[in-house]
Design a binder for these strands. Structure first.
Lengths: 159, 159
DNA sequence: TTTTATGCAAAGACTTTGCAGGAGA
DNA sequence: TCTCCTGCAAAGTCTTTGCATAAAA
C-alpha cells in the first residue's frame, strides 16, 4: 500500500520521460525537454504562463509557443510526470510528481503554499475508502487559511 | 473549535440570505431567490450552466441571464452561503453550505461524488496547522479513484 | 521518407463587464 | 426618487485546435 517515492535526479527523470515518449511513439524535442527542465528547477507550483515565460527567459533562442507549453503539460500530466492543483480563483498550477506524497497548506492572504506529509491522515483515508469499497488512486488535501507571517502582518510572497 | 452545523430548512436559509442582502445594502430580487432555491433543491454539485438551465426550466416566465447566475453565485460564495469545488477538468461546481462539514470521494470513471465526514482527520488537520502556526479557515479534501460500481463495471451516473 | 511537432493565429469554452432600461427600497 | 439589478452583447481570460512548415525517426 505504502509507496515511498525517492526524489529523482534530473538525468533519471529525463530517461524516464524519453521512455514514455518512446512507448507512445512520440518524438523527443528540445521544447519538451526544456519545459521538463523548467518544471524540475521550479521549486514552486507553476502556471502554464509562468512556465512559458521561464522558457523564454532561459532559452531565448528557442522560439517556443504557449500552445506547445500547454500541449506538453497535458502530455506530462497524462503520464503522471507532473501533477496539477487548482486553487480557487488562482487557476491551475503544476508541479513535478517527484517527491513523497504531500499535501498543502495554502495561505488565502499571500498565496503561499506550505507542503506537509502526514501518515496518519493517509492511513485514515484508506480506512474511509475501504468503508465505501472505493479504490483510491490519488487525493487532494488543501488546508486554507492564514499563514503565520500574514497573521502578523507580513509581506506578500510569491507562491 | 468544533462547529456543528445543522441542516437548514429553506425558509431559514431564505431569512439568512435576506439578512446578508440587507447587511450589504443589496436588493432582494426574484432572480436571486430562484437561484438560491435551485441550489437548495439540487442534491448534487452543480455547474453554473446547469443552474442556469434549471432556472429556465423551473421558472420559464422569468427571463434570467447567465450573467445573473454567475453574479449571484459569486455573491453567495463570498458570503459563505454556498461552496465551490473544482474537479480536474470538470470545472467549478457549487453546493449549498448547508450540511455538516464533509469531504468527497470522487470517482474518476463516472464522476460520482460520495460525501463523508471524519472527525479524526479534522482533528489531525488542526494539529498540523498548529505545527506551522497556520490558522485554518477551511479545507478541501478529495479522494480520487474508482467507485464500487465502476470497479464492477457499472453504469454511468450523473454527479 | 514518413510521421509527428511546432508556432502562429483562430476558435472555443467559460466568466466577467459595460450599458441602458427596469425593479426594489 | 435614488440606487441597485438585470439582460444583452461585447470583451476578457485561459486553453485548445487547424494548418502549413519544420524537425525527428
Amino acid at each position: 500500500m505504502k509507496k515511498v517515492k525517492k526524489m529523482k535526479r534530473y538525468d533519471e527523470l529525463l530517461v524516464e520521460f524519453k521512455k514514455i515518449l518512446k512507448e507512445n511513439r512520440l518524438k523527443y524535442t528540445i521544447q519538451r525537454e526544456v519545459i521538463l527542465k523548467v518544471l524540475f528547477d521550479s521549486k514552486k507550483h507553476t502556471t502554464p504562463e509562468e512556465i512559458y515565460d521561464l522558457v523564454k527567459v532561459r532559452f531565448p533562442k528557442l522560439k517556443t509557443g504557449i500552445a506547445t507549453v500547454y500541449r506538453t503539460l497535458n502530455l506530462l500530466e497524462a503520464n503522471n510526470v507532473i501533477n496539477s492543483i487548482t486553487f480557487g480563483a488562482m487557476g491551475k498550477k503544476y508541479e513535478l510528481d517527484n517527491k513523497p506524497h504531500h499535501d498543502h497548506l495554502i495561505c488565502d492572504e499571500c498565496g503561499k503554499i506550505i507542503e506537509f506529509e502526514d501518515e496518519e491522515i493517509e492511513i485514515r483515508q484508506c480506512e474511509i475508502a475501504k468503508k465505501y469499497n472505493f479504490k483510491i488512486k490519488s487525493h487532494i488535501m488543501q488546508l486554507h487559511g492564514i499563514c503565520e507571517e500574514c497573521e502578523k502582518g507580513g509581506e506578500r510572497v510569491d507562491i
